[in-house]
């Protein structure tokens, strides 16, 4: 029991962050019109590409002689970049139709 209490008290910041971020995610898109569902999904898809950072760290820390970890890390970087770059570009293309028109 003591372990849990100690864990709770020393990780309060993180517990608050997780709960608030959960609510923020819901709150921030709660009023989205139907027509934006697909672009928003696509934009969120690009944002979880933030795992590319994990890929970079994994590859950076892979020992030079460990072929398996180097391969995994390299694949992770390539796939993560595809997620990020492809995700943002495809979202931008979907959102082109919403660009501001010049008023006459």
């Amino acid at each position: 029991m003591n372990v849990w209490i100690e864990f709770f008290l020393s990780n309060l910041d993180m517990i608050y962050i997780v709960i608030l971020a959960l609510f923020l995610g819901v709150e921030v898109i709660s009023a989205v019109p139907t027509i934006l569902h697909t672009p928003l999904m696509s934009g969120a898809n690009a944002i979880h590409g933030v795992v590319i950072i994990g890929g970079i760290i994994a590859l950076a820390l892979a020992p030079e002689n460990n072929f398996l970890l180097l391969t995994f890390g390299f694949l992770a970087v390539v796939l993560g970049t595809l997620n990020v770059v492809g995700g943002f570009v495809v979202t931008d293309r979907m959102l082109e139709m919403f660009k501001e028109k010049k008023k006459q």
Binding site: L22, F23, V32, T34
Partner: peptide, 24 residues
């Protein structure tokens, strides 16, 4: 990985994505 950008980005997409799925 104890990485704040991944934690926040991941949770945001996880919860926003769940709501979006329900809205769809």
């Amino acid at each position: 990985y104890d990485n704040m950008a991944m934690i926040i980005g991941g949770i945001l997409v996880g919860s926003a994505g769940t709501l979006l799925t329900i809205l769809m």
